[in-house]
Design a protein around this nucleic acid. Structure first.
Lengths: 199, 199
DNA sequence: GGACTGAAACGAAACGCCCCGTTTCACCGC
DNA sequence: GCGGTGAAACGGGGCGTTTCGTTTCAGTCC
């Protein structure tokens, strides 16, 4: 009863058809993958899920809310732990790019960014995502700090900001096929700026 | 006749009413500023310009093409020249953020990025913009290289990529009000990674 | 435990509104 | 007249809502 506390979805009454919500989310993802963001419409999702539009609107207040929940259902990318900051960051970006290329996450995230430019809900969610709880990159840097790899006084936030900005832009400009050398070069420039004297 | 070689615009016949195209572009910009990307429609532009839709479609093949030309009409931001790389980069980002905040360029560019997620034309234009001829950032770095501020073997492209990725993401997540300290911190981390031994 | 009942969620269809991109048409200036 | 023009309307589609008749479940009474 106190379970399932997603604030985006309405919580009135118990769901009679528990499959419905799941089928809608799966249909939404399928439509997004097959038809792209331009083909992503509530009507298309309803058709595909063999559901009525009112059923969708009963639980998600808007197209953006549905898109957001589809995004949240995506599996997170792995954070490598090699014991060296450079390898962790390069590996993370490689994992992320591969994940975005090979699953639907990439197009879903792109869609979310696009939707955020015209929908306030999506914009707020995206900002919260970008600023919210420690990102993967912050975790990686903080772990390196504990190992003593990071110079005194270095702030993790701007570092994480730089790295994930790099990832966003490559996603948005179709450059997820970047080879390891390019990634390593960019990461390296940031890294040398924050390395502890010893390293 | 050989003038006005914008490939996006049709070149059939001479324009009878030169005011028309200008009025449409101005209306497009005004709509974009006042109603945002979500309110940007060909019909809205036509209404505002007191023009017919066919007139717009006669000169621009699609909504994206119109948006693109509005973007291209924007005044470019100034590139500072202080003689020090750090000041140039920090100043450039400050100028850029201010320019994006205080003119319509910011929302226009955001709209272009959003449009690129559903329109192939806009996507190609954006990729060309991101990868195309030397960006402002590359120019700044190259100038610093000639002054000997940049270490041997440092590639300008990834540096420029990092800096402008940072700018894009701050635009997309409504963080153009960043204070100088934050910008300086992020730029500094990259800079220390590329500085010549002497600096 | 089994049948009845009423509330709630359901799919389908249609609504009014808006936008897209196109076509038609009368107009007006060269 | 000819070519660009604005106005209007087209078919196609999506949005978010409403209506309608049906299904499904929870609670109740025996």
């Amino acid at each position: 009863m106190a379970e399932d506390a997603d604030p985006a979805r309405r919580s009135i009454g118990a769901r009679r058809n528990p499959d419905s919500a799941g089928a809608i989310l799966e249909a939404a993802e399928a439509v997004l993958v097959e038809a792209g963001y331009s083909g992503f419409s509530i009507e298309a999702v309803a058709r595909r899920a063999r559901a009525g539009k009112p059923t969708i609107y009963r639980w998600w207040p808007s197209k953006a809310a549905l898109l957001l929940e589809v995004y949240k259902r995506q599996k997170r990318v792995d954070i490598p732990d090699t014991g060296r900051l450079e390898e962790d960051l390069v590996g993370f970006l490689q994992n992320l790019f591969k994940h975005w290329r090979e699953t639907s996450s990439g197009s879903i995230f792109r869609s979310l960014i696009a939707e955020a430019q015209s929908d306030e809900t999506a914009s707020a969610a995206l900002a919260e995502y970008a600023l919210g709880r420690p990102s993967h990159t912050v975790q990686i840097v903080e772990r390196a700090r504990q190992r003593g790899e990071v110079a005194e006084g270095v702030d993790s936030a701007p570092v994480a900001d730089l790295i994930s900005s790099y990832a966003w832009r490559h996603l948005l400009t179709n450059r997820l096929d970047q080879d390891e050398q390019s990634i390593r070069k960019a990461v390296g420039y940031v890294l040398r700026g924050i390395a502890a004297p010893g390293n």
